[in-house]
Nucleic acid binder design. Structure first.
Lengths: 190, 190
DNA sequence: GTCTATAGCCGGATAGAC
DNA sequence: GTCTATCCGGCTATAGAC
């Protein structure tokens, strides 16, 4: 229950979050996290039972961050169309990281699809959150096929991310993000 | 130059191809390939200098297979629209593998984007082949933005693959493939 | 060409001093 | 709570017998 321990726990999660994104889950070792934080390897087991537990904590904080992100869209405007455009704009700010490492959610889910089912299911949770939020935005605009549209939007974002990262093409990424916003407008206007 | 050795070399490549797809490159060990082929681990170094060399050979055979695939589309019809639809149909036949392990090209490229640049560049080559072939199909139909359309088609395919694998949803995958064929028709008719 | 044995390193996880 | 030392196993790669 000490405050000191919780601070270290948070630092481990933040370093693991970044490394899982930039290097992948399986390619990140305890030594890597130790180097990034200055916390000795053996100490990790005071905060987490296994490496899988670190992944669970990382995904939980990603979900918390995404919740803050969509809540800030909710606070900004009552127009669901503007919320979706605002959400897309937020993603555009991560374009340099996307070119280098892909989508944090998509690449982790793709990696862990080849691993144990429990890890894969955990990695899918951020997608579930986003699908439900986007769905509720389309619903509030009176669109009947809101869930299909939510999957379409996520698929568009994932598709351009995979190709932009594969070809290391930031201009393609920018152009495609504009087309996605055009698509949002087309689906939600009138 | 013996014929026996070349047979073993081919068996190693085929087993590695399947394992790199189902488990990932970094998660596939020489022991895994040995178990799958019955060829002892130490023997691999007679055929390949390093594990990276096996990856290079695997990607080369994937490129050869894709070349056969697009050539069979070229042979079947002189209508580029029909060729693109035929290509999409061929991808649909791999839907069960896609749900389990994603796209062989996309998931490998996403994984190796977080690895050494040389491996990532090699893994991108199948995408280059497909982009150029799709581009030439759109060009032969007189479309001026053929390269953009080729990237759009590949992005659509990658996007639905990532989401279908993430959610393990084969019905979504089928529906989305039909929508992609509708899009091809929309872009290429009249 | 084929196979065994093993080097040398690094991984996750543990024990126990402080 | 913090840190060191270490176990045990798996990894790529090599050496060398046959």
């Amino acid at each position: 229950m000490g405050t000191k321990g919780e601070g270290n726990r948070q630092r481990i999660i933040e370093a693991a979050d970044s490394l899982f994104y930039r290097r992948g889950y399986n390619q990140t070792s305890f030594q890597d996290i130790s180097d990034a934080t200055g916390i000795p390897r053996g100490n990790f087991y005071y905060y987490f039972k296994t490496k899988d537990d670190i992944l669970n904590a990382v995904v939980d904080t990603r979900i918390a961050d995404l919740t803050l992100m969509v809540n800030s869209c909710e606070s900004a405007t009552s127009d669901a169309r503007e919320r979706l455009l605002m959400f897309s704009n937020m993603l555009e700010h991560q374009q340099d990281d996307v070119i280098q490492s892909g989508c944090p959610i998509g690449s982790l889910t793709t990696e862990l699809a080849k691993d144990e089912p429990a890890l894969h299911e955990k990695s899918r949770q951020p997608f579930v959150l986003l699908r439900n939020w986007i769905k509720s935005q389309f619903e509030s605009l009176g669109l009947s096929n809101a869930e299909d549209l939510a999957m379409d939007l996520l698929a568009k974002l994932q598709g351009v991310t995979v190709m932009a990262c594969a070809f290391k093409d930031v201009e393609y990424l920018k152009r495609s993000h504009h087309e996605i916003k055009d698509w949002i407008n087309k689906k939600t206007l009138n």
